[in-house]
Simulated assay, not measured.
Amino acid sequence: MMRSLWTAASGMIGQQFNIDTISNNLSNVNTTGFKKNRPDFEDLLYQTTRTAGTPATEETLVPVGVQIGHGVKVSATQKIFTQGSLQNTGNVSDVAIEGEGFFRVLMYDGTYGYTRDGAFKIDSNGQFVSSNGYRLMPELVLPENFIRESVAISQDGIVTVNLPGQDDPVTVGQLELYRFTNPAGLQAVGENLFKISNASGDPIGGQPGFDGMGKTVHRFLEMSNVEIVKEMVNMIVAQRAYEFNSKSVQTSDSMLGIAANLKR
C-alpha cells in the first residue's frame, strides 16, 4: 500500500485536533480568566534509504541522503498565559490580577486549585468563595455587620471594610497570590481551575505587587485572552491544510486505481 495514504491521513488527524483546539478557544471567548491553548506538532520518524556521507567512490562521499517522512503528530498543547483585558464590573467581590499569579482555592477533596478567575462571591458566612463554592485561601471572612459597598481591596491585596458607627475602615484580611516556574505545566481540570504537576513546580506564594507578583485590581475581572480574529485565521489555515491532505489521499487512491487497472 502506498505510504502517502498513511502520511496524508496523519495530516488530516493532526488538523482535526487543531480544529478541536481552536473550537475550544472560541467557545471560551467569554470565560473569565480563560487562557487559550496552542497545539504543537512534530514530524514522525523518517525511513532512510541512503545515508548522507556514504562513500560514492574511494575519494568522494554522497553529499545528501534519501529520507522519506511518515507524517505528523501532536507533540503538545500549551496554555498561553498572556494577560487578558480587564473589564470593570463594579461588583465588590470581583478581583482581577494584573500581572503574574493565581488565586488559590480549597476544593472539596482537600486539594488546592489555582485560578485566574476572580469572580468571587460572598456567602452567608461572609466568606469569599468561587462560583462553585470553593473557599478562597487564605480564608477571607468579613464581619457579620459589615457594610457591603464599603468593601475595598488594595493593589497589594489588603481587604478593608467599614462597620456601622465607625468612620475608619477596618482591615479584615490579606489576599495572597501564587506563581509557578512553569505555569504551562499546570494541569487544567475545568471550572477555571488548574492543579499543580511535576512539570509546573511547587507554588511560590507572595503578596500582590511584591516579588514578581501581579497586583490585584478591585471591581474588575480579567477576560479571556482569546483573540477571535487570530483564531478565525488559524481555523482557515487548518481547514485548508485538512483539504490539502485529503487531496493527497484522493491522489494516492487514484494512482492505486491506475495501477490496479493496468491488466485488462
Rank of each mutant, 00 (worst) to 15 (best):
R3F: 06
R3D: 04
W6L: 08
T7P: 03
A8M: 03
S10K: 04
M12T: 10
I13M: 12
F17E: 14
N25P: 01
N28F: 14
G33N: 06
F34Y: 13
K36C: 09
K36Q: 13
P39G: 10
P39A: 08
D40S: 14
L44Q: 14
T49W: 04
R50M: 15
G53V: 03
A56Y: 02
A56V: 13
T60A: 09
L61F: 13
V62L: 15
G65R: 04
V72M: 10
K79Y: 15
F81Q: 03
F81E: 12
Q83L: 08
S85L: 08
T89M: 05
E98H: 11
E98W: 11
G99M: 04
E100I: 03
E100F: 02
F102M: 10
D109A: 04
T111E: 14
Y114F: 14
D117L: 02
G118C: 06
G118Q: 05
A119D: 11
K121N: 13
N125C: 08
G126M: 04
Q127K: 15
V129H: 11
S130L: 08
S131V: 07
S131I: 08
R135I: 15
M137C: 13
L140I: 15
P143T: 11
E144W: 00
F146C: 02
F146R: 01
E149Y: 00
E149I: 00
S150I: 00
S150R: 07
I153G: 03
V161D: 09
P164W: 10
Q166I: 06
P169E: 04
G173N: 10
L177F: 12
L177M: 11
Y178M: 06
R179I: 02
N182Q: 12
L186Q: 01
V189M: 08
E191M: 05
L193G: 03
N198D: 15
P203F: 07
G205R: 13
P208E: 08
D211I: 00
G212N: 10
L221I: 14
E222A: 09
N225Y: 12
V226Q: 09
K230P: 02
E231V: 11
N234D: 15
Q239E: 13
R240T: 01
A241M: 13
F244C: 10
F244L: 15
S246C: 02
K247I: 07
K247Y: 08
S248K: 08
T251L: 10
T251D: 09
T251H: 07
S252W: 02
D253C: 00
S254R: 14
N261Y: 07
R264W: 00
